[in-house]
Lab assay of single mutants.
Amino acid sequence: DHDVVPEDKFQETLHLKEKEGCPQAFHALLSWLLTQDSTAILDFWRVLFKDYNLERYGRLQPILDSFPKDVDLSQPRKGRKPPAVPKALVPPPRLPTKRKASEEARAAAPAALTPRGTASPGSQLKAKPPKKPESSAEQQRLPLGNGIQTMSASVQRAVAMSSGDVPGARGAVEGILIQQVFESGGSKKCIQVGGEFYTPSKFEDSGSGKNKARSSSGPKPLVRAKGAQGAAPGGGEARLGQQGSVPAPLALPSDPQLHQKNEDECAVCRDGGELICCDGCPRAFHLACLSPPLREIPSGTWRCSSCLQATVQEVQPRAEEPRPQEPPVETPLPPGLRSAGEEVRGPPGEPLAGMDTTLVYKHLPAPPSAAPLPGLDSSALHPLLCVGPEGQQNLAPGARCGVCGDGTDVLRCTHCAAAFHWRCHFPAGTSRPGTGLRCRSCSGDVTPAPVEGVLAPSPARLAPGPAKDDTASHEPALHRDDLESLLSEHTFDGILQWAIQSMARPAAPFPS
């Protein structure tokens, strides 16, 4: 592969990997390779389809078979030569091979799209000592099968071997295949498990690692696999990028399955594409389908809103127990993405979901129960707010008499603000006073009005108090039968009158 990737590009890729991570280095090298001529790309395919690569990765054979028959990708048995050289000459001794072996032994695996480039050397060096003999053996194999790289107009793939297949390693990572398949204008990513390549439709969760975000852009890794992070704060999961590491605690105790298979379609829109997988259930989501939507993949363990709600429900009964003089119970939860139609709101002032922060849900004790107040519409209280300059209440639009249902020339009671006709409430011909108009209920007259088809109010509507207090003497005590009587009149003013009279009014101040 030294004929494909020059030394300066190799060093530039290593520097970019240390600065921005393996995914960015892979993407940059792939983009550079696509700008080369067809001879360089053909050399790339020839390096990929060597015999030892085909033996190690069985899924490469179907890719090789898909090439046109007129494309010669065979390799000479006596060494490598550029395709432009007409004579089959043995190339001179390859010093770059020693360079590659020494550099890969030092860096474990470079971040390139060629056999030198995919593992994360920093994480491997940190986690190597417990498994040094086995990992050293794996390093000797890295130059042979560490990076199976493929690129063409139909298929483009980048393979990364790992030393996680050490025997006896619980939940060992089998390997990473960062794979971009450009077929019919689409893009897919796969993962390699035990020599087999699994596409998103049959993606397997190998051991402790999972394909957290099938994305090839942005600074985030394709698999949430930063070796420096180790395990999740809650004892979460091992990262795919942690090559040759000792077994780590796999999943939280509440995880239903340690080796679950995540779905390959969004649980909201039932469509495929780039998904984020939940650590607590097999569901996966688009970032845009979450509520609120996320802009980037959160670091650490992530769970959907259903799993978060289940966790909150487990903690909430203990938080609601009476604990005198104790601060509110704080339950730190990872930043969760909410699927459509589901929402768990945190306290005000918290950062938005999706940031690399930890939301704190506070379970406050329930407030003391209070008697429910009568629910009145805002339009129902409008007549009470229509007060004239002299303190006389004006008529609201649409006000109707509670007896006849007519809204023409209605009066407004100064005591309960109900609309009424003087002739309907006082049919006996009582003279109307000039000021202080009161309806039949507030004036103490319980004589029913002779209106055909309208039920008369119940005599129990009024329960006047002592006459010594004029204001308190007109406080009506309405009961269920009074409400039914008012409802039978089918008037809004009657219902409003009952609601206003049912509310307690402050006692009249004593004259000074």
Rank of each mutant, 00 (worst) to 15 (best):
P282H: 10
P328S: 13
T430M: 15
T331D: 02
H382D: 07
C307G: 14
Q393S: 08
S488I: 05
P351V: 08
E296S: 11
P247H: 10
S369I: 07
G465T: 11
K362Q: 14
T435R: 06
A371T: 10
C266M: 06
P334W: 15
R423H: 13
H259L: 05
V451I: 14
D271S: 14
L287I: 06
S441F: 12
Q309G: 09
T331H: 11
L496V: 08
T414Y: 04
E321C: 12
S473K: 04
E390S: 13
A463I: 10
G465N: 08
D279V: 04
A353V: 09
G375T: 08
P365I: 13
P347I: 12
N394L: 15
V403Y: 13
T331E: 10
S379W: 15
P347Q: 12
P327S: 10
L275K: 02
D493L: 00
V410N: 08
D482T: 02
E263D: 06
A507P: 11
Y361D: 06
Q242K: 11
T430R: 10
M503S: 03
P374V: 13
L250Y: 13
V312N: 10
R295L: 11
G444R: 07
L437H: 05
C278L: 08
A460F: 12
C416S: 01
Q316E: 10
H421R: 01
V410A: 09
R270E: 09
E265F: 06
L411D: 15
A396H: 15
A310T: 12
H421A: 01
A319M: 12
L308V: 09
E265Y: 07
D255C: 13
Q313D: 15
C304L: 12
T435D: 12
S291T: 07
G444F: 14
G494I: 10
D470Q: 08
E330H: 12
S339P: 11
T301L: 11
P450V: 10
L373M: 14
L462G: 11
H415R: 06
C442F: 02
P397C: 09
W302K: 12
S485R: 03
K362H: 05
L373T: 05
D264Q: 14
Q393L: 11
P506T: 09
G391Q: 15
D271N: 04
A456P: 10
V403G: 09
P397I: 13
S291R: 05
V268W: 15
P506Y: 00
T358I: 14
P433G: 13
T358H: 12
